[in-house]
Each structure stands twice: as structure tokens, then as C-alpha cells.
């Protein structure tokens, strides 16, 4: 978070091993009798409901009319209407915000993953002491609360003419994702046998060919983890676009939402639609890539 941004990145000096592997295959049946019986089951599913119901209410209310929401706060969308979506998407400018968020996030993740993969490969394989030093430098970024540097970043952007620029925001996010990406990817590159490169070199492959044709395909699962996991905090980030963007046509979703909420605080159904529009890509991402997200969340923990 945005906060999610930095918080999910473990300030950890611990060595990382992919967790799921360590956990698998050690599960004797006897010790795994459900602890706590039926009461515990009720607690677990009850809390699952508490976690989910507010999000379901958000979706359900977005398919209702404003008048309906006010007269019957506990009602259901019968019949459902998409009017609020049409309103948010067109007059509420969410189409613009959505496009901006998508462009900035996808661009940042692509740049960040590309440069971090190259760097991680060199850091994992380089023998010179300078690579150890560079690796510590990058990993120190895991500990830096980058949001606290917003003021110098603002003046840096001002000097570079990047204020109110989606490209600037994209580069900023790409840079801030580098430590986490390098942290995960160096671990994976180190697990690959060096014989692979030696064989490639014997066959006359250049460093770049070895990297691109042989090593990158082998770390594809880690690339997926890094890309998917970085997507979330960038998509959700609020402070950078709040400070670095000026005009509404450049806003990303969180700032656009704030803008919309400020002007339409009583148009509840349209606000609900805006909340859903902002959230939908993450829910979709979570459903198709649960494994990668969980791996990212636990990356700093595994020992």
C-alpha cells in the first residue's frame, strides 16, 4: 500500500527461498486434524464474510439508482441498472482516468521488470566485488520510504519538465520497483546452474544471447511474480499522482476518484461505480494470478 507501495516490500536481509517449495510435502495426516472443531469453522467462514461483504456491497450498490440507495440502504439491485457506470465512465471522466492508470502501470511494470532482470542477472553472476556493492545499494532501496522524498522528486520533475507528465510518473514507478524486483530475481538466477552459460559460450553465444535466449525463459515464473506483484501498489498509489499531476486529463484512478468524490459526494451510485471501476482490474488480476501475488507477499519472509 500505497502505502501498500512500500509496506509490502520486506526490509529484510534474510536470504530468500521460494516459500511454497519449502512448505510442500511435509504434511503428516495426523497433525493436521482441524484444530478447534466446528466453532473454529464458523469463526473462519464468518470472518471471510466480514472481509468480503463490504466489497460485495460496493458492487451491488453500483448497480442501483441513487434514489433507490437513499430510500432503501439495505436493498438489492432489482432490477440491476448500469446507469451509474455510464455516468461515471463518460461524464465522470473515468474512461480517461482508467486509460491513464493502465498506461502508467503497464509501462512502469514493463520498464522496471526489463531493467531489473538484466541487472539481477549480472548481479547474480558477476564475480567482481563491485557487483556485491551494487547489490547492497539496490537492496537498500527496500528500506527507503520513497514517499518521504516527494518534495525533492517534485523539484526534480519540475527541473526536467516532467510535472503533469504520465511518462515521468511511469519512470518514477519503474525506478521505485527496481529494489524489490532485483531482490526476487537475483535469488532465482543464483539457483540456475552455471553450466548452462558455459555450454552456451562453447556454442559461440554472446552474453546477450545467453541471457535472452537461455536465462530469461528459465526465470519466467519469477518474472510473473515480480510483474504481477508490482502492478498492485502502482495501480493503487495516490501520493505521487496527487502531487505530480496537475490537469484532470492526466489523472490516474485514485486521484480521479478523489476529484470525483469531491464534486459528486451525494451521487452515491456513481461513486460506487467509480470505486468498482478502480478495483476491477486488481480483482481480475488476483483471480488469474493468485499464486504470483501470494509468492510476492511472502517473498520477504521465507527463510
Amino acid at each position: 500500500m500505497t502505502t501498500a507501495v512500500v509496506t509490502t516490500e520486506a526490509p529484510s536481509e534474510q536470504a530468500v527461498v521460494p516459500t511454497t517449495q519449502a512448505r510442500r510435502g511435509r504434511r503428516p495426516s495426523r497433525a493436521n486434524r482441524p484444530v478447534g472443531g466446528a466453532g473454529a469453522g464458523v469463526l473462519l467462514w464468518g470472518y471471510a464474510a466480514l472481509a468480503l461483504v463490504p466489497l460485495l456491497l460496493m458492487v451491488s450498490n453500483s448497480f442501483r439508482t441513487n434514489a433507490d440507495l437513499i430510500t432503501d440502504p439495505l436493498g438489492l439491485p432489482t432490477p440491476p441498472t448500469v446507469d451509474s457506470y455510464v455516468e461515471a465512465w463518460t461524464t465522470g471522466n473515468f474512461a480517461t482516468y482508467f486509460g491513464n492508470s493502465l498506461a502508467v502501470t503497464v509501462g512502469a511494470v514493463a520498464i522496471s521488470t526489463a531493467v531489473a532482470t538484466m541487472a539481477a542477472y549480472a548481479l547474480a553472476r558477476g564475480r567482481s566485488r563491485i557487483f556485491r556493492w551494487l547489490e547492497s545499494l539496490f537492496l537498500s532501496g527496500l528500506m527507503l520510504p520513497i514517499h518521504l522524498a516527494i518534495l525533492p522528486i517534485f523539484y526534480l520533475f519540475d527541473g526536467l519538465g516532467l510535472i503533469d507528465s504520465r511518462l515521468g510518473l511511469m519512470l518514477m514507478y519503474a525506478a521505485s520497483g527496481i529494489p524489490f524486483s532485483i531482490f526476487v530475481l537475483t535469488t532465482f538466477f543464483r539457483q540456475l546452474p552455471e553450466e548452462l552459460e558455459e555450454a552456451a559460450a562453447l556454442d559461440g553465444a554472446s552474453s546477450w544471447q545467453t541471457f535472452w535466449r537461455i536465462m530469461v525463459p528459465l526465470v519466467r515464473p519469477a518474472l510473473a511474480t515480480v510483474a504481477v506483484f508490482r502492478f498492485v501498489p502502482i495501480w493503487n498509489d495516490f501520493l505521487f499522482p496527487l502531487v505530480l499531476l496537475r490537469r484532470e486529463e492526466k489523472y490516474t484512478l485514485p486521484v480521479g476518484l478523489t476529484n470525483f468524490f469531491g464534486e459528486n459526494a451525494t451521487n452515491y451510485s456513481a461513486v460506487f461505480a467509480g470505486l468498482v471501476i478502480t478495483t476491477i482490474p486488481l480483482i481480475l488480476l488476483f483471480l488469474v494470478a493468485t499464486k504470483q501475488i501470494v509468492a510476492g507477499l511472502t517473498a520477504g519472509m521465507a527463510k
Binding site: M1, T2, N236, T278, T279
Partner: peptide
């Protein structure tokens, strides 16, 4: 973990 992924602004 679902709410954790949603934007704090939302």
C-alpha cells in the same frame, strides 16, 4: 487478502 489488494483510497 482481497481487501488488502484494493486501493486504500477506494
Amino acid at each position: 487478502a482481497m481487501p488488502y489488494l484494493v486501493s486504500p483510497i477506494v
